[in-house]
Simulated scan of single mutants.
Amino acid sequence: MHSLLVAPFLDSFLLMRPGHTAGAKLPRRRYDELTGAPQGAPVPVWLVTTAHQVFGLDLSGRSLDPTVLVRQRSPHGYVRASYELNLGCNYDCEHCYLGDRPFDGLDWTGREKLLHIMRDAGVVWVQLTGGEPLIDKYFPEVHRLAHELGMMVSISSNGSRLANPRILDVLTTYRPYRLTVSVYGATEESYDGMTRRRGSYRKFIKGMDAAHEANLPVQLSVVVSERNADEVDAMVAMATDRGFSHHVYVNMSPTIHGDGSVLVTQSAEHLRERKQFTGCNAGHTFFHSDPHGRASICKIGRDDAIDLMAEGVAGLSRLGEVADRLMLRNGGCSGCALSGSCTVCRPLAKQYQQAKAPLGMYCQHGQRKEVNA
């Protein structure tokens, strides 16, 4: 198993340690030196020094292979991706943006193929998500292979399976870059009420304690709803008391199918004015894959998805064009005088419009009147 990873990233070359946030940029000549090193070559002196300075690792006397995994350049230029292993979940959260959550996805052969496609596309950072990825029967194998292929893995989870010995074993053996865990309440009543699963709060607490003991890189995503709005400080304390970082999430979204019924869970008091949307790399250097290997520009803009199982990595050559088309201000946004300072992308605005959501949730035209009422 490699201790360090070297990979092209856009116009630079990165030196990383799997499971850690520290890293360094390498000049092209150093990257070329590593890719051209002969079989059995030792770790060069400059890299021994850098590894000790940045990561505290002693690589003296070690062979370059397998100590350092050097990723090859990709002509496709995709450096980040997210992968929904399975939409199935052991919760039934009242705010879930997925809507229907069927237990369905690729077999193991298909998943191996998809991960190799991601590697060939140049993906360095991959997010494993769901549904709930940790209940997927192939999660350990997917996580391990992504690591072995030279990807920095992040995971989005509800934390309910973190105390499972098999899950803990794979996460401590192949440490993720980040483990983002959603928290839905600081009390059993609010948490179980939001997930609509009795006992989910107790599983969450057990998972958090196990992750803390294993020193996993957890970040809590504090999900604020009408149900738990008076528990925000207590949920934040769940993170700070364990030494976890945290992010407070307050703006609910319609489902990916444009169903607005989930918006009733929004805490109007906590609805936050979004920053101006100035563009993103969706479809150009980032893509999303659903459980069947269909690539879209992101989790929100899923129209015109590309079947990677049928087309392979070459299919991604069309995704940039799809992204540019989906970002056009059309439909209900055509001719808007405020579009230059809009706070949401076009795919997200489309979902709000399909859901017939109040303008104040996503559009400046109704924001002040409806949010401050």
Rank of each mutant, 00 (worst) to 15 (best):
A7W: 00
R274P: 11
L87M: 11
G56R: 07
T265Q: 11
E273K: 14
V262Y: 10
R28Y: 12
A37I: 06
L47I: 09
N215F: 12
Y362I: 03
R274D: 10
F9D: 01
D107M: 03
P291G: 00
H270L: 08
L85V: 05
M16A: 14
A214W: 05
I135L: 08
Q353F: 08
S154T: 10
P102H: 00
A355K: 07
G110Q: 00
S157W: 05
G40W: 03
R198K: 14
V45T: 15
S225C: 09
L14D: 06
Q53C: 13
T278D: 10
R178F: 03
K350V: 15
T180N: 13
T109K: 14
M151S: 08
D192F: 03
N158S: 08
A24K: 00
L338K: 14
H95V: 09
T187Y: 05
L98N: 10
G312C: 01
Y174L: 08
W125H: 13
A239L: 02
Y177Q: 11
A163G: 03
E189R: 12
G36D: 11
M235D: 02
T195V: 01
M238R: 01
V322D: 00
S160K: 06
G279K: 02
V371D: 09
K25P: 12
Q53K: 15
K350N: 14
A239N: 00
T173V: 02
R28P: 10
A211R: 07
N251E: 09
V126Y: 01
R29Y: 14
V48H: 06
N90M: 07
Y174C: 03
A295I: 00
T129D: 00
V371P: 09
R101M: 06
K299G: 15
L87P: 11
H284M: 13
R73M: 11
V181W: 05
S200R: 04
V371Y: 10
A355F: 07
A22F: 12
T180E: 12
R197N: 04
P102M: 04
Q53R: 15
T240Q: 02
V68K: 02
V68H: 05
E226K: 15
Y177L: 15
S245H: 10
L308Q: 09
A337G: 11
T49H: 11
P358T: 06
Q364K: 15
N86S: 11
L359P: 01
E370H: 05
A211G: 05
N281P: 13
G258P: 04
F244T: 09
A305K: 06
E188T: 10
T195D: 05
L34S: 07
S253Q: 15
R101P: 07
A323T: 00
A229H: 13
G332H: 10
A268V: 14
D209Y: 04
V79F: 12
V264K: 13
A239H: 03
S157N: 04
R62Y: 13
E188Y: 05
S154R: 09
T172E: 07
P291E: 04
L85M: 06
T278P: 08
D304G: 13
E189N: 09
G199R: 04
N330R: 15
D11K: 12
A163P: 04
A146F: 00
M1K: 09
T255W: 06
P176T: 06
N372Q: 13
H52F: 12
R272M: 12
R197G: 03
Q364H: 15
I117R: 08
G193S: 05
L87A: 09
W108V: 04
R28S: 12
R175N: 07
M16D: 11
